[in-house]
Amino acid sequence: MDNFDEATQNELRTFIDREQAQARIAQSIHTMTSRCWDKCVTGTPSTRFSRGEESCLANCVDRFLDTSLYLVKQLEAQRHSL
């Protein structure tokens, strides 16, 4: 990257940061989908989820998002305290 001027280096850093953030989001979605599916869908999948499966999936996703948000806030707090 030393061959590029400062503006190009900054643009590349921004691009790489965005791509890494998108990859982290995609990985989180994959992890959430896999865990919640394994936990909640116990029978053979059909065209509709049972009421219990639907409720379990909604709660699982909500808890996953709550946990993720909590972790992000904790990491932000640690970063600001350094």
Rank of each mutant, 00 (worst) to 15 (best):
M1E: 08
M1T: 06
N3C: 14
N3H: 15
D5T: 10
D5I: 04
E6H: 03
E6L: 06
A7V: 05
T8F: 02
Q9F: 01
Q9W: 01
Q9C: 05
N10W: 03
N10R: 14
E11K: 14
R13M: 05
R13D: 11
F15V: 05
F15M: 08
F15Q: 07
F15T: 07
I16Q: 08
I16E: 09
D17Y: 11
Q20L: 10
A21W: 02
A21F: 07
A21V: 01
Q22T: 09
A23W: 00
A23C: 00
A23M: 06
R24Y: 02
R24G: 00
R24D: 03
I25H: 12
A26C: 03
A26D: 09
A26V: 06
Q27C: 08
I29G: 06
I29L: 12
I29Y: 06
T31P: 00
M32E: 04
T33L: 09
S34D: 12
S34G: 07
S34A: 12
R35K: 09
C36F: 00
D38H: 11
D38E: 12
K39Q: 14
K39A: 13
K39E: 13
V41E: 04
V41K: 11
T42D: 08
T42N: 11
T42L: 15
T42P: 01
G43K: 07
P45G: 03
P45W: 08
P45E: 04
S46L: 07
S46W: 03
R48T: 15
R48S: 14
F49I: 06
F49D: 05
F49L: 14
S50Y: 03
S50G: 12
S50L: 03
R51L: 14
R51W: 13
G52S: 14
G52R: 15
E53Q: 15
E53V: 13
C56N: 15
L57V: 11
L57S: 09
L57A: 06
A58I: 07
A58K: 10
N59R: 07
N59A: 06
C60T: 07
V61R: 09
V61M: 05
D62W: 02
D62I: 04
R63W: 03
R63G: 05
R63T: 08
F64K: 03
L65T: 08
L65G: 04
D66T: 06
T67L: 07
T67N: 13
T67V: 05
S68L: 07
L69S: 13
L69A: 11
Y70P: 00
Y70T: 10
V72N: 01
K73E: 04
K73V: 00
K73R: 10
L75M: 09
L75E: 13
E76F: 02
E76H: 05
E76P: 02
E76I: 08
A77H: 02
Q78V: 00
Q78R: 09
Q78I: 05
R79P: 07
R79F: 07
R79M: 08
H80E: 07
S81N: 10
S81L: 11
S81H: 12
L82Q: 10
L82P: 05
